[in-house]
Design a protein around this nucleic acid. Structure first.
Lengths: 201, 201
DNA sequence: GCCTTTCTTCACCACCCGATGAAGAACACG
DNA sequence: CGTGTTCTTCATCGGGTGGTGAAGAAAGGC
């Protein structure tokens, strides 16, 4: 552990902010890859080249670290804003494009982390549900205004969840390696149909 | 632990098959509720009113128990067969109806168990992928025969995954409490469009 | 009756987990 | 230079995990 001449001796040799940042990035990576409970504090610390105790020094609990890693104030909101900026008749395309483009940038997106952990971790499920309701369902339903708005918005959630799981978590082919444009072409109309399409009955 | 006069003393007082069955049912319940890694052998044993060692006596490893709990030979196949029994023009409805009706019968369905565990457990992911490929994707793609058949079949997978996660795992409203007919009306055409609908390009 | 097989319990192992507390080294400031 | 704060390491704790081995009790075969 003395490969760079800095490890192995106690004391301060790095700014605290740097270590904190490093832990945070590693945590995002591992939480995003294996979910909350399957990721250990020790694994994060080791991968970040840091003593496990530092994690607790900076973030208190594993809980707290996850909360900090999943925090996304100011990052996603502008992207979501652009969804609602245009007309209702092409909103399907914008939803799919915004979703895929943002998630493609980095696999350690909070949304992917939460979607991965939600099925087995109650806390993650609560956070994900809260986010989806607040940023997607409620706004979509309000925008529609029809009697079945809630159901239509929920159908969009199904599309978002299915797409996220298939492309970023289970990496099902050929969904996982399709281009953004291909997915927009395929799923855009589908999402559009959820919101403004006719009903069977 | 002596409430029924049978616990607390060693020896045989029940047929082995009965205990094995009891463990299996409890395992399906708990695995389906909390996923693979979050469910402990001890929890299953306790809930089944059995010593933890019995689990290993009957199933060898936790691994083996999960495999046995997820086994579904002869149960799902007939249901899937009915999907491909009819024409291609109403297959969307049949897919949704078969899926929802089978999963509604019991939350401890192997498909739900696997879908819940897949995001955080590599073994579950492999099993789920194998099942989906063999029973859904390959057969759908073969039935279609078009150049984009693989992509269209994968889009159906997205619908199935999204619907399963939303209704049975995250229990998103109003998807979770909708009637079977409602879901068939809403998602049937969507799935149908995935398979036989026109393309944007 | 005995003896073997089957089922059940108990005690235990090594390991890993999240978390704590003390103590020391590097820095910042006076 | 000295003092206090910040960062870092280490040793450790209590608890839970999957898994093992021996030993004992009930049942079946002869």
């Amino acid at each position: 552990m003395t490969e760079d001449g800095t490890h192995g001796r106690p004391g301060r040799w790095r700014s605290g902010a740097e270590s904190k940042q490093r832990i945070l990035e590693t945590a995002r990576e591992l939480f995003g890859e294996h979910g909350y409970s399957a990721t250990t504090v020790r694994a994060i610390a080791t991968a970040a080249g840091v003593d496990p105790a530092m994690v607790f020094y900076f973030f208190g609990t594993k809980h707290g670290l996850f909360g900090a890693a999943v925090e996304m104030s100011g990052n996603v909101p502008p992207a979501i804003e652009s969804i609602f900026a245009g007309g209702l008749d092409t909103i399907g395309e914008r939803i799919v494009r915004t979703l895929v483009e943002n998630l493609d940038k980095s696999g350690r997106t909070p949304l992917v982390m939460l979607t991965r952990s939600a099925p087995t971790d109650a806390q993650s499920e609560a956070l994900l549900r809260e986010f989806i309701d607040r940023e997607i369902t409620d706004r979509l339903a309000a925008l529609l205004g029809t009697p079945d708005a809630a159901l239509r918005a929920a159908m969009v959630n199904v599309q978002i969840l299915g797409l996220t799981v298939a492309r970023y978590i289970m990496r099902i082919e050929p969904i996982a390696s399709s281009s953004v444009d291909e997915l927009v072409d395929r799923f855009g109309p589908l999402v559009q149909h959820c919101l403004t399409g006719p009903t069977a009955s």
